[in-house]
């Protein structure tokens, strides 16, 4: 068993001229293709007993974050549509004012002492995950003049094989900053970009409590045929 390579146009390149931080950090030598071994097809068994879960980033005992409360739910599947159960999903984000609870974030926007901006959930047997947070704010960055990141939540996922490891970002529908963002637009295929945008979902929305968004994530699928020229 091995994991199929994603279609190239669905993934960003290492060298992306419009995203300044890639200039000195992308390898100039081509990657060396290897045949996957147990080291790539196995993965750490992440489980709640080892990694504590946080389903609500917006509220805890005696505190509640400022901002528009939202619930995000979705499924983690592989490319063949099979649910990925027990996948560890880490999320992190800026606060409602567009500032991270991080010492290196010097954006002049208020910090919220009640918002850490980090959570961890596991998918259930059908691949579903769900958490509640506040809608993050947009924030400026110094990539180019008047550069602003669209509203987003960072995601980190562990699947059943280390080759499925994924870090990505979830964006919000209708954000006017999306067409201007070099990071979002580094993904060549427009349809693949659009799949990074969550959908407003009335079924996820909790009455009198939180607006709901749906965001499904697809991890690499299994390849039925062995590689032609394995290393």
């Amino acid at each position: 068993m091995s994991y199929r390579l994603p279609a190239p146009e669905t993934q960003p390149p290492y060298d992306a001229p419009d995203y300044g931080s890639t200039h000195k950090r992308h390898p100039k030598q081509p990657l060396i293709r290897i045949a996957q071994t147990l080291s790539e097809t196995s993965a750490p068994r992440m489980r709640p007993s080892l990694y504590e879960t946080t389903h609500n980033l917006a509220k805890g005992p005696g505190w509640e974050a400022q901002g528009e409360r939202i619930t995000v739910a979705g499924r983690v599947l592989d490319e063949d549509g099979r649910p990925v159960p027990g996948a560890m999903v880490e999320v992190w984000q800026a606060n409602a004012a567009g500032r991270y609870n991080h010492e290196r974030d010097q954006h002049d926007a208020p910090l919220d002492p009640n918002f850490k901006g980090e959570g961890r959930i596991f998918t259930d047997a059908e691949g579903w995950y769900r958490y509640t947070t506040i809608r993050p704010g947009a924030y400026p960055w110094r990539n180019h003049h008047n550069a602003w990141r669209p509203v987003h939540i960072h995601y980190s996922l562990f699947g059943a094989g280390f080759a499925q490891r994924l870090i990505t970002q979830m964006y919000f529908p209708g954000d006017p900053l999306l067409p201007l963002d070099p990071i979002f637009n580094c993904v060549p295929d427009p349809a693949a970009r659009q799949r990074l945008v969550a959908a407003f979902d009335l079924e996820v929305t909790e009455p009198e409590y939180a607006l709901g968004y749906r965001f499904d994530i697809v991890l690499r699928g299994r390849d039925a045929t062995p590689m032609e020229n394995p290393a």
Binding site: Q11, P12, Y19, E79, I167, T168, R195, L219, R220, G221
Partner: peptide
């Protein structure tokens, strides 16, 4: 049937 979600930094 589905395409792997795009990676982001």
């Amino acid at each position: 049937p589905l395409q792997a979600t795009a990676s982001q930094t």
